[in-house]
Write a protein that binds this DNA or RNA. Structure first.
Lengths: 250, 250
DNA sequence: TGGTCTAGGCTGTATATACAACCTCCCGGA
DNA sequence: TCCGGGAGGTTGTATATACAGCCTAGACCA
């Protein structure tokens, strides 16, 4: 058998064209029959490639019409890799950030466990507050394996959020999340301008690359000013999306 | 063409067997050839059904060996359709439930908005508490469109959770979630045996069928005894999932 | 001009067939 | 006893073929 299945090669070829920008959202992707011609595969193989790309959110297909590059937003899922800045701006609000600290420091017990390191191994760590229209909305406490992002300490995180920077240098990662309601520690409460005993939504997030954890973040949100939302369409429910603004085709 | 594709019927049949418990984790699922015999489909159709169930995390396949029901945790995406009872049991703990109320009542403003109904339209509503090893872990306040589940009031929800019952009568739905950290209302605090000012994780969930919302639930969890976890692998990262235990509580 | 109908392209599904790769188990030979 | 080598079942992939259903553009007719 081939090293890579042909439907997989087809998928990767198309994804390359999308992520390189040669194919833009709403552009037409070659039809199954065109792929049969150009790639020399059977139509069922082309169909599988395009169908899986549909499931993965890269393209949308309309029977009778064709296959089109999907709008990036359609691909996003609750807690998916998505920057809080983009979210705030997509609400039409203004995002700003303030860096509290940004330095290399020895891992504490928590970081060491999360990143699978020995205690006191040096890690990069940034603490910053995100504001929505001037209101503090998230305290981000993030640690990164230095060898994964050597330039990390040189970034200006008031311009590019850590998530954006990291997803730039390694776009496809795996992530693990834990969501909890907690009482915020005093310093968090202070940074976020929260009332005493105000509930706090804590999202703990780890991302992997090459089989090992490389970043670890604790994201604190004031309960009264923040919520996580998401839409989930399980298997087979293809047409999808009751969601209020349904998007249409050009 | 058939109302439902045959591969879809096959998938639903197998999912029903899994979610009803007739097939347990690690049990063997009928092979492609057995499905060819028993369901009267071609092997490619059986292959597609099983392959998609693999992608969706319901089953795992090993070439040369067979197809097996996946370990539930591997299947679960954060906030996916999954019964809390199954989750508790997958941790090796004991799940029990107590029904506080179960009746038909006119929709209040909140329910009417969520289910897209006129106020005072009758809906079915159940209030129940879920326990993990005797500890209250979730207060479920769920409303259902009567025409969607006419037998709803006749169920014994100490035996089958509303989620399980609903996913039995319509396995594949779309869902929308909102997660918040809140202060629990007094009656919730009492039902869950929570301290005053203890943070509360609230998951609001709506599910759709045939293009309209059919169920609306508010799930309250004591912040000190509950967390949501999830693993996310973006498109193309198929092998997935390190996921060592990051499951314990402060 | 304006409405209707159809041809043709496209996706969606289903089947039969074929071969490769993998795994377990059992049998036979050293 | 131990080891090697198949046999047979299972998944993974690829192809050719067929038909149903959707959509648009353009031909056709009133």
């Amino acid at each position: 058998m081939r090293a890579k299945p042909r439907y997989q090669e087809l998928k990767e070829m198309i994804v390359r064209q999308i992520s390189s920008g040669r194919l833009k959202p709403h552009d037409r992707v070659p039809s199954e029959n065109e792929l049969v011609e150009s790639a020399g595969v059977s139509r069922m193989t082309a169909n599988r490639a395009l169908r899986e790309l549909t499931d993965e959110g890269y393209v949308e297909r309309v029977a009778g019409l064709g296959t089109f590059v999907a709008d990036p937003k359609a691909a996003s899922h609750l807690l998916e890799v998505k920057s809080i800045a983009a979210e705030i701006e997509s609400r039409g609000h203004r995002h700003t950030a303030r860096v509290i600290s940004l330095k290399k420091e020895p891992a504490d017990a928590d970081q060491a466990r999360a990143l699978d390191l020995a205690r006191r191994t040096p890690v990069f760590r940034v603490l910053l507050v995100h504001f929505e229209n001037g209101l503090p909305i998230q305290l981000e406490d993030r640690s990164i394996l230095p060898e994964f992002a050597p330039e990390f300490l040189l970034q200006d995180f008031t311009l590019v959020t850590p998530s954006e920077y990291l997803s730039d240098i390694a776009p496809l990662q795996e992530a693990e999340h834990v969501v909890r309601a907690t009482r915020a520690p005093a310093e968090v409460r202070e940074a976020l301008d929260m009332e005493r005993d105000e509930p706090c939504l804590l999202v703990v997030r780890r991302t992997w690359a090459r089989g090992r954890p490389v970043t670890y973040g604790r994201l604190y949100h004031p309960g009264s000013r923040f919520e996580l939302t998401g839409h989930f369409a399980p298997p087979g429910v293809r047409p999808t999306a009751p969601q209020p603004g349904l998007e249409q085709k050009p």
